[in-house]
């Protein structure tokens, strides 16, 4: 198939960027989207031109490295699919494909399609963990957990941290990402002791990173390659409200 690509090119965070057009001919429909970009880059490289920088690693939809806007949708329009798992058979010969980086103030562009998503790491660092010193753990079966609860926690834990939720959100909010971690840990008994301090700290960090708010558009859950439910955001809101109402022993 033949395609026209409009790709965002930007030298670094300080430079202005612009779209460039590339004509791609004889693309095999069994290629993945990133392999199609590989073909382009291989050609550019052998011509001595700088290839299009894009983030990628595992190429099996789990590491969360890849992610670009493809025709206005993060990871493209195929539901529950990362960019690396999107295949060219989803496109038609003659298509125009616009490829842009994920856009958010908290995700500065580093080069071309590569953005800095370390803000998401800092949200986890703020409290997205269970404190369990190595070697201090009780026997794994000492705390039975209702299967349905464990399953719900797992659903939330499936987040790969790719940032598609932020990219798709009209407010560039990271609520789905943060809510997923709060729900994952907050549902499990192991996460209870830090449940409320966790939500306080993670939400504060989210604001500090200049992510937006949630208007319940619901874009994020559709864009999420793992289909994380919007319910995690409600769970986070609930935990935060409860946390505010509980107060702290250190007050007054």
């Amino acid at each position: 198939m033949n395609l026209t690509l409009n790709i965002w090119r930007q030298k670094d965070g300080r430079s202005a960027g612009q779209f460039e057009t590339y004509q791609m001919n004889d693309i095999n429909e069994h290629m993945s989207f990133l392999e199609m970009l590989d073909v382009l880059n291989d050609k550019l490289e052998s011509e001595g031109k700088e290839p299009v920088a894009f983030e990628h690693d595992c190429r099996e939809g789990i590491c969360g490295s890849c992610g670009v806007m493809i025709n206005g949708a993060p990871h493209g329009h195929l539901p529950r699919t990362t960019t690396c798992q999107l295949h060219m058979r989803e496109f038609k010969s003659g298509d125009n494909i616009t490829i842009e980086p994920f856009r958010a103030g908290a995700f500065p562009v580093l080069r071309d399609l590569v953005v800095d998503r370390s803000a998401l790491d800092r949200i986890v660092q703020a409290g997205g963990y269970v404190s369990a010193r190595t070697g201090s753990a009780p026997d794994a079966n000492s705390v039975p957990i209702e299967k349905d609860l464990a399953d719900r926690a797992f659903e939330a834990a499936a987040c790969i941290g790719c940032g598609a939720c932020v990219a798709s959100c009209p407010n560039a909010a990271s609520m789905l990402f943060t809510g997923a971690k709060i729900t994952h840990l907050g549902l499990l008994p192991q996460g209870q002791p830090e449940r409320y301090i966790r939500v306080d700290k993670m939400v504060a960090q989210m604001d500090k990173e200049d992510f937006g708010h949630c208007s319940n558009y619901g874009e994020c859950t559709v864009a999420c390659p793992k289909g994380i439910s919007l319910d995690v955001i409600a769970q986070m809101n609930r935990d935060l409200l409860v946390s505010q109402l509980r107060g702290r022993s250190t007050e007054g």
Binding site: N6, M69, G72, A73, H77, N171, A172, G212, Y217
Partner: peptide
């Protein structure tokens, strides 16, 4: 919130499609 939302995405997309958001939202 609108002001913060604008700040949260200072550079917009050239091409953006809504995936699900209803007309109402």
């Amino acid at each position: 919130l609108v002001l913060r939302s604008n700040k949260a995405r200072p550079v917009g997309y050239k091409k953006h499609t809504f995936l699900s958001g209803s007309y109402a939202v």
